[in-house]
Amino acid sequence: MNTSSPDAVHPRFLKKPVFLVGGLKIALVQLSVGPDKAKNVEAAVREIHKAKEMGAQLVALPECFNAPYGTKYFSEYAEEVPGGGTSAALSAAAAAARVCVVGGSLPERCGPRLYNTCTVWGPAGELLAKHRKVHLFDIDIPDKITFRESDVLSPGDQITTFEYGGIKIGLGICYDLRFPEMAQIMADQGCSLLVYPGAFNMTTGPRHWEVLARARASDLQLWVALVSPARAAAADYVAWGHSLLVDPWGQPAATLGHEPDTLLADIDLNTVEEVRSQIPVRRQKRNDIYEIVHKTNKCQTD
């Protein structure tokens, strides 16, 4: 049995032997999202309970699961976090089902600012984490898609992780996936799973959705989960769908199509240990030449 030195910050890696029995059953819920916020939230709560019945311990929802995705909708659908109705519904659902809920994302109003925000709720209904999308989706692909979240939204300024079921989990939202430095910091902090609620579109989805997930997973030797809304061809913004889970070898473990559906799979910690011991890039990094530094923002305005 391999007893090599630990290669991550999280205390789990300080224990011997390296290979541990453990894991987490995760459900990625690919919801159909329409213009009626109440119906969207009701559908999410219903699917949380269904996932629990299938054995899920952690249930993840997609980006903007309670509202249509688009700059013209953010202000209309925005609410306070955690004081708004959507947060209350997720908290109650997590407590009733006794699961951890990664609440996709919703438009958050905080004073004069709007954010794209993910909330995480524990099995007692407690707020475990809140992540505001750090990298705003501003792109221009001629004759394909032009979108500017920064016209309406403010960016978050924090790296977000939380622990559940003995696994440290990192959070990002959609465009955050494109920035490996952010993922590297979460991995350095001991994460074995990164969850990205996202809504890639019909241009970037087929090109980059799976590629980026596999890159983050293989580079950092951890699990990566992407959770998309279902595709709605009549929507102003058409999501790619294809929610997926990628293992620490960089291989898709499970994936969905573009219809409403739920992906249920096991996060196996043994796979993380296996990859990191057999290909020990974390111990081989040349920190004497290069290093990614996490600068904590100590000045909070809200």
Score class of each variant (00 low, 15 high):
Lys52Leu: 00
Ala233Thr: 14
Gly22Lys: 07
Ala235Glu: 10
Pro155Leu: 14
Ala93Arg: 03
Pro68Asp: 09
Leu31Phe: 04
Gly83Ala: 06
Tyr196Gly: 05
Pro260Ile: 09
Gln278Arg: 12
Cys100Asn: 00
Gly257Ser: 15
Gly241Pro: 13
Asp143Thr: 06
Pro82His: 03
Gln278Phe: 13
Lys285Gly: 14
Ala97Asp: 03
Asp157Thr: 14
Gly170Lys: 00
Met1Pro: 04
Ile167Val: 05
Ile267Ala: 01
Asn287Arg: 15
Ala93Thr: 11
Ala233Pro: 15
Gln251Ala: 14
Arg148Gln: 12
Glu163Ala: 00
Pro280Arg: 03
Phe65Glu: 01
Lys133Val: 14
Leu114Ala: 08
Thr160Ala: 07
Arg282His: 12
Trp240Arg: 05
Tyr69Ala: 03
Thr119Leu: 04
Val134His: 12
Val246His: 01
Gly156Ala: 10
Arg113Val: 07
Ile139Thr: 09
Pro62Lys: 05
Ile289His: 04
Pro280Ala: 11
Gly111His: 14
Glu163Tyr: 00
Ala254Glu: 07
His135Gly: 06
Leu128Cys: 12
Val224Asn: 00
Arg12Ser: 01
Leu177Asn: 02
Ser228Gly: 06
Val246Tyr: 01
Ser32Ile: 06
Val45Asp: 06
Ser218Tyr: 03
Ala232His: 03
Arg109Asp: 04
Gln158Asn: 15
Gly83Tyr: 11
Val45Gln: 03
Phe179Ile: 01
Gly70Lys: 10
Ala93Gly: 05
Gly122Pro: 06
Asp151Pro: 07
Gly22Arg: 04
Lys72Asp: 15
Leu128Tyr: 15
Tyr290Asn: 15
Phe137Met: 12
Ser192Asp: 15
Lys16Glu: 12
Ala56Val: 05
Thr262Tyr: 01
Leu263Ile: 02
Leu14Trp: 15
Ser91Gln: 13
Cys118Leu: 04
Leu106Phe: 00
Ala265Met: 02
Ala235Gly: 12
Ala233Arg: 15
